[in-house]
Each structure stands twice: as C-alpha cells, then as structure tokens.
Design a protein around this nucleic acid. Structure first.
Lengths: 238, 238
DNA sequence: CGCCGTATTGAGCGCTCTCAAGCTAGGTGG
DNA sequence: CCACCTAGCTTGAGAGCGCTCAATACGGCG
C-alpha cells in the first residue's frame, strides 16, 4: 500500500507532493487521495509506461527513476520529446488529444504513481490550492526545454547539462552527477548526432569546463558553462 | 462595455468562449464574469501587450488580431517564441514564474481581453467544466510548435504553413490566406534565416506546391505539402 | 517622386552530418 | 580467470545544408 507520510523519502521532492500530502489530512481527504492515487508501477529499464494511441486515462508522477518520451515517425525514426526525472509528472500533453502522443519508457528502474484523470479533476475541484499548484506545474512544463531554441550545438548541450543538474536533484544543484541517458539519446533530444555530443563533451573536457568519465560528469567551471549556454552566435540582430 | 452575447461574432471562435459564454447564465455568474474579464485593450501594430519582468497578473485572450512573443538575449538578438491568433490565449507560461518571460507585441491591430489571474482561479473553482476546459487549453499549448523538432528547413516551413492555415481560421482549414508576419519573423521562429524562408517559398512555388504573391499564399497541393512536413531525412534509424 | 524597409537571388563558407574505423567497458560462457 | 562479444563511445575525413555577406528589386508611404 502507498505510504502517504509527509516524510516519506521518495515523496519528499515530488512536485506532486501537495497532491498526496496536502495540509488537510482528515479522513475524508485521505479516502479521496486513496481513490485518486490508484497504484504504483515498478518499471525495469526499457519497460514501457504508455504507448501512443493508448487512450488517455491517467497522469503519472515519477516517485523514483528516469523516463524518456518519444515519437516514432513513418520512417521508423525515434524522436525524443522529453526526459522526466524523480518527482516530475508525465501525461499532461495527452489531456488535449484524449490519447497519448508519445511512447514513455524507463531509462532506469523506476517507480511510478498512477493518477486517473477523472479522480484528478475531482480532487482539483475539492482543493483550490491544489488546483493552483497544478496550473503552476503545467505552466512550468510550457517552458521546459527552451534551450532547444538555441542555435549552436555548443549552446544546446551546455544548457541541457545545466538543466539536467538542476532537475536530477531539485533541492540543491549538483556539480557532480551521472548522466541517466546515452549520448545517442542526448543527441536525439537536442536534434544533434551522438558523434556531435561526443565531440562537444570532449571539447568541454579539453577546455577544463567539465570533467567527464563515461556517465560521470562534473562541472569544473559552472559560470563558463552558463556563459556558453547563454552565448549567442550573433545572428538575428534587431 | 463587453458584449457577452453568445453570438458576438468576435467571440464565436475564441478558445476562451466557455469562459465568457458558459451555459449557466444566471445573474450571479454574469457578475462573476464581469469581475473576471476586466477590460479590452485595443493594440495597434507593433504595440506592446506585456514585457518580460512585468509582474504576472493577467492572462489574455485575443478577440481579434495577431501577436508574437519573443525574448531578447544579452546580445540584443530577438528570439520569437510563438505566434498567437484570434481566439487564442497568452500568458500561461508566466503562471510558473510570476512574471512574464517574453515580450508580447501586436503584428496587426488587435483587440485583447484581459483576465486577472486571481479572478480566473476563482472562476475555475466555481465551474468544473471551465476548469476542465482550461486544462485542455494548456495541454494543447504543450504541443504547439512541435514541428520545431523537425530537422530540415523544408519540413519545418511546410509544417508551419499548415499549422498557420488551421489556426488562422479554426472553423475550417483555409487554402488561401494572408501571412500575418514577415519572412524575417517566420525565419526567426523556425530558427532559419529570412533568406532561407524566401528561397524555400520560391522553391515550393517553382514546384507548384503553393502559389505565393507577397503576403498572399495559396496551397495548390496540400497533400504534397503535408508529405513534406512529415517527411524525414532518414536520420536516427532505430 | 524619392525614401526605406522588406523580399529575392547569388556566391562562398562553415557547422554539423555522414560514413567509417577503432576503442572501451561490461557481460557471457568456457 | 580469460577470450570473446556487443553496445556504446570516440575520433577522423569528407560532404552538404543552411548561414553570411552582398547586390538588386519591389512596394508602401510620406
């Protein structure tokens, strides 16, 4: 059964925690919650959470683990649309179409909370603070991956790494962490090739901006990295 | 004063119309609405609706006209983040940060409905169908501009033109319409140069896929255009 | 009519892709 | 324990798409 304790370590940094641990902890509310958060899935690496064309019925909060979402086009090419980490929420994009648009698969062993959308709507109505919080989360998702608008490969990768460091550990920014995905997946997401990612990581390493050894990465000059991320190549002058 | 008549021509295709013309038309509801939709702005071409760093207080529905949102980076380069047309809603991206992230300016003379966010939240709580509708709209915005993920310039422009034709006239897809923005703005939005846009439009015209004369564009082979938009260049085979 | 912003078209260049060849780490089986 | 195998990563050389720079044409507006 689900542990709704406020101090449950795996819920501590979940962006959905107001949903599960909201202040009014009376029995009626808890029974509502128990109806809302239906079950936990345990996914092993490469296992599927949902597939495109599946009817949209639930949104999902990641209690622990990492996932990616992707489309497959007519030619069979995979296009990664997002990465999701502990405490983040998947499925909002499917409210609109009533079916999922992407495939969602685990990048590592993961635990997922399933929340049926109908229960979700009902709870939102019962709790204005929760309603406000959900609009906040969706607004946040509107701005995720804004660095994909950057032009050069260097900018996009630098911004991606910084974003990753924040999202992997929401409580405090980490300068050392493990990349949860392959070079191939990073490249696919940033619309670059794995070779370009590999070359750029080597270049950053060469310039002592990062240290990198396989999946383990460390920021040596965070400010320099931020500079690269914000840096513009001089196009589009007003 | 605002005309809340259901048949008001300018509200007919507004995605926000449930907000203003929702079924329960009792006096209490109308007074709520009157408090919610605060006023209408009349913007002339190039006039500003909001600026980055302005405190977020309102969301805006476009009653008539076209707007663009953009960022300006440290080097003074403009980066267009979105186009918005009659009946669409701006400002959701600012809920999260409590201040606007972009500049919003009119591409043509426009009329805008201003809805204070606090009133908006209150109304959502009063009307579950409205709450559901807003989640629908925000979910929709999560998927806007997905063609920016396409790789080739040809793909991106073709998908942009198709998207435009739907959004300029939500009730029925138009094969002939006027481009509301410059080549420069299209290029900026698609992360291409104005020269590339110009060359591609000429190429589509050469291939009899579209007819184009200045701002006036006509789809001659819509299916072919859709094929180009979906077409992949063969990268990222699984 | 003359001005100026916008659009078109051309020539050359550079960034990123493609293709290809090694390399490394981790897993498997003998 | 080691030989092998495979997937992922690195690195190099060449090609191509879209950018840069530049010249010209067009059109709206005073």
């Amino acid at each position: 059964m689900i542990n709704f304790d406020n101090n449950h370590p795996t819920c501590e940094h979940c962006t959905f925690s107001p949903f599960c641990t909201i202040e009014e902890k009376n029995s009626r509310w808890m029974s509502q919650i128990n109806r809302a958060v239906k079950q936990h899935y345990h996914l092993k690496k490469n296992e599927v959470l949902y597939l495109p064309q599946n009817t949209f019925r639930n949104i999902y909060a990641i209690q622990r683990g990492n996932l990616k979402t992707y489309q497959v086009d007519a030619d069979g090419n995979e296009l990664i649309r997002g990465f999701y980490f502990s405490g983040e929420v998947l499925g909002f994009e499917a409210i609109y179409t009533r079916h999922y648009l992407f495939s969602a698969v685990a990048l590592s062993d993961s635990v997922i909370c399933e929340i049926p959308y109908d229960n979700f709507l009902e709870l939102l109505h019962l709790s204005p603070p929760l309603q406000k919080h959900i609009l906040y989360l969706m607004s946040q998702q509107l701005n995720v991956g804004s660095y994909l608008f950057s032009i050069t490969a260097e900018q996009r990768l630098a911004a991606f790494l910084i974003d990753l460091s924040y999202r992997l550990n929401p409580s405090e920014m980490q300068t050392t962490f493990l990349l949860p995905m392959s070079r191939q997946d990073i490249g696919n997401y940033l619309r670059l090739t794995a070779e370009t990612i590999s070359r750029l990581l080597s270049q950053f390493k060469e310039n002592k901006i990062i240290a990198i050894d396989h999946k383990k990465i460390e920021f040596l000059q965070l400010e320099q990295l931020k500079l690269i991320a914000d840096m513009n190549d001089g196009r589009c002058k007003i």
